[in-house]
Write a protein that binds this DNA or RNA. Sequence first.
DNA 1: ACCTCGACGTTATACGTAACACTTCGGTGG
DNA 2: CCACCGAAGTGTTACGTATAACGTCGAGGT
Lengths: 344, 344
Amino acid sequence: MTSAQQPVPARPTSRDVARAAGVSQATVSLVLGGKWPGRVSEVTAQRVREAAAELGYRPNLAARSLRLGRTRTALLVVPALTNEFFARVYAGAAALAAEHDFGVVLYPSPDGTGPARDPFASARAALDGVIASSMAADALDALHGADLPLVMLDSDPSGTAPAAHVNLDIADGMRQVTDHLLGLGHRRFLHLASAVDTWTFAVRAEALHDALGAAGGATVRTVRAPLDVGAGREAAERALAVTGERPTAIVCDDDILAAGACKAARRLGLRVPDELSVTGFDDLALATALEPELTTVRLPAEQVGERGMEALLAVLDGRPAEQGGLPVQLVVRGSTAPPPAARA
Amino acid sequence: MTSAQQPVPARPTSRDVARAAGVSQATVSLVLGGKWPGRVSEVTAQRVREAAAELGYRPNLAARSLRLGRTRTALLVVPALTNEFFARVYAGAAALAAEHDFGVVLYPSPDGTGPARDPFASARAALDGVIASSMAADALDALHGADLPLVMLDSDPSGTAPAAHVNLDIADGMRQVTDHLLGLGHRRFLHLASAVDTWTFAVRAEALHDALGAAGGATVRTVRAPLDVGAGREAAERALAVTGERPTAIVCDDDILAAGACKAARRLGLRVPDELSVTGFDDLALATALEPELTTVRLPAEQVGERGMEALLAVLDGRPAEQGGLPVQLVVRGSTAPPPAARA
DNA sequence: ACCTCGACGTTATACGTAACACTTCGGTGG
DNA sequence: CCACCGAAGTGTTACGTATAACGTCGAGGT
């Protein structure tokens, strides 16, 4: 055995294609890169394409990235993928990315607040930009250090970081919820809030208090819980078990917490919505799986992802990123009704 | 202006670090690659590390991939990320990958059955291997064509493709469900099956029929629906509305369909579990959000991802991949009870 | 006959890294 | 005193691609 063995038929390179087509490697690159009109004749181009197909040629993306200095890949940082909201954000971003021949790689931050390990190393690819969703403020720094174009989704826009922002009109959503409940006659509220301290939840609390304050005569207690059905149930159960005047409506930061609130109500023998109204936030699939179906605020999750990717592409092109909040919409279903007193 | 301008302080390369540390680029590579013991003195190594930190050096991953021919990146192909099961599979795979300094990039196949576009181009990175979860048989071909190491999760192991398999003992799970219901006294079943025709669902159907056949005296009707609460409800409602003897138990291919079945029951005025038992499959968060909580089969989703990644790493190392199915476990909750007749 | 010019390609190069082979140099044993 | 050795690095190369700069060749104008 004197010759080098080739146990695996190594992936063909553009040079192999060139050899097969009887042209130079540069020509292969031109043809396959779509830059041939006027530089390569149609017959030659055809021959190259056939040779490429024949050999099953696939360009080496690492080499291309190295050469171009760009990767057409974005990193999407989300708190947790098991949350349907972020899965949908990803779907939206990935869909728009695909249209522009871009890729999206994910970095789900382990603790749900910000990147723990090095997200860039974990991406295992050179990145053109970063999209970060619903991150805590301090998480910003870690991302910001990489001086990559940064787009923040659903995050505090007053930050000092040079990032484009795509935000939901969360405050308006919470206002719609509050108005709906006030209109039904509710005056005693429980706010079942997320234990996570990010902008998106801070806005919910602020908007709720503002709207109730403006209305006057309304009271609200707040309890916090992790975004988890069981934790939400426990927190709600404890809060509802207090003596004195029970709240007639629970406003939840999230559909998951709302599911917990509904369970708590049932455990305590309170009928939803007759004796207790419950509202969610997000409009996850869960909202219509429950009985009664949840009154909640629909967030255009896919659109958030799309707009985020759009903004990133704009920044990369040197265009100004389109700012402005995305509208959200109250969806009234079966979990809200006038309070017992108003029914009498 | 005669000199080339440098508007952006371009990312430092290993050569910049070398210059700053007063050594050669090769030495930087040795030190930062951790191969220096015995080849570079401790003092020099320290100097290099300091220079790297000073400049904020990050290795160019594209260049590294090109040089090494490996990327330490795997592609995970899943039907849909919004399904919590697959999000958890991803989490498991990504966690184990991170331990081995590997990355995982996702390809959610748009239609939920197999890769539509080119998943490898969409990954936008050279890949070391592919893990495909719950794919339809014909989707195999597309993935197989790339002659990358392939690991199949929860898929037909009798396929001819040279792939490692990590499977759940789905049949046993369905057997446990059936035995549970038979033990409660049920004899008339409705199988609310997934409309998707993949191995994992075929096994459910087969195991259900086998177990019922073995028991004798039991009947089962089958209706199919897409994995969606609304679709599940409609299908179940239609099936339950037939004249004649109503089934006393609905066996669902999935918790989502089970949620639909519960809604259908409530619409028809049937109380779960007193008048109708419902079982799910997967044990998603949804299962404990519903009232009553679902009796279902817990699938170790994260473990599936972990084992899949483990198998891929094994294949890449030339080690044999550990085969064998993962055990699943019936979780009895509140949605199952003896049928009305048995209670009388 | 000479020059020009467009059409069609080719040659050469750089991207940043890792690894191999090689050099330098102060000892050290024979 | 010299050959040899290990320690500590350095010079060089290749990975596969995209593109700038450069050739070639025949047709058409003058």
